[in-house]
């Protein structure tokens, strides 16, 4: 029998790094040097910060390239970067750097094009706390998820991808310990795209994925 699922919660707070980029060159230079935490924040932190409706792009770099730099090719390429596909934040940083360099080689005008607004690099601190709740079975998890806080959803479904070696969420990781009996639930969870929804919407989708025959 697997260990009980420990329900944790978290809160994130944003910190200005003071670093700004007005041009592609400045973005490139800062991307090379900025703390990995900041890169992480610009991919995932937005889920825990005020924003409106669904995100058009899955990371802030792509959004800035589209709306402030007005360079659609760079925005589109950056938007397709999936942070979970990289072994670590350094590999992700390298991918971003290469995308910017490649685009600057393609479009000479980007060497001096100035954005309408600067890209402000932000990093974050995350405070994780144990709620004390323990869940023994997949059924318990399915019943509990609708009442999870947005912070718990972020911690177990988003932040987990950075923590676990296989880059999977905590729910799938735990359900896998039940052997093949929860394959349906695991597949359903894997099919959820975490990028373009609010945490409240994600909670609903996760709850649905864990209902009805998720485990046999």
């Amino acid at each position: 029998m697997p260990e009980p699922f420990a329900v944790k919660d978290c809160a994130i707070i944003a910190i200005a790094t003071g670093k700004k980029a007005w041009t592609c060159r400045e973005l490139l230079d800062t991307l090379r040097a900025i703390d990995g935490d900041s890169i992480y924040y610009h991919f995932w932190g937005g889920l825990m910060q005020p924003r409106f409706e669904e995100r058009e792009y899955n990371n802030d770099f792509a959004g800035w390239a589209a709306h402030s730099l007005n360079d659609a090719p760079l925005a589109e390429r950056m938007a397709m970067v999936d942070p979970t596909a990289y072994a670590d934040i350094e590999a992700l940083r390298q991918e971003l750097v290469e995308l910017v360099e490649e685009r600057m080689d393609e479009a000479e005008g980007l060497q001096w094009a100035r954005a309408l607004a600067p890209f402000g690099f932000i990093r974050s601190q995350i405070v994780v706390f144990d709620t004390g709740r323990r869940l023994d079975s997949a059924g318990d998890l399915a019943a509990a998820v609708p009442n999870f806080s947005a912070g718990s959803i972020f911690y177990h479904f988003i932040d987990a991808r950075r923590r676990s070696p296989a880059h999977v969420d905590d729910f799938r990781y735990w359900l896998a310990e039940f052997g093949d009996s929860c394959l349906t639930g695991i597949e359903r969870l894997a099919a959820i795209d975490p990028y373009f929804q609010t945490l409240t919407e994600l909670r609903l989708q996760i709850a649905e994925a864990l209902q009805e025959e998720a485990c046999t």
Partner: peptide, 12 residues
């Protein structure tokens, strides 16, 4: 956060 230092991740 201020009581636990400047680390990026604070586990209570």
């Amino acid at each position: 956060a201020l009581r636990h230092g400047a680390g990026e991740r604070i586990e209570l």
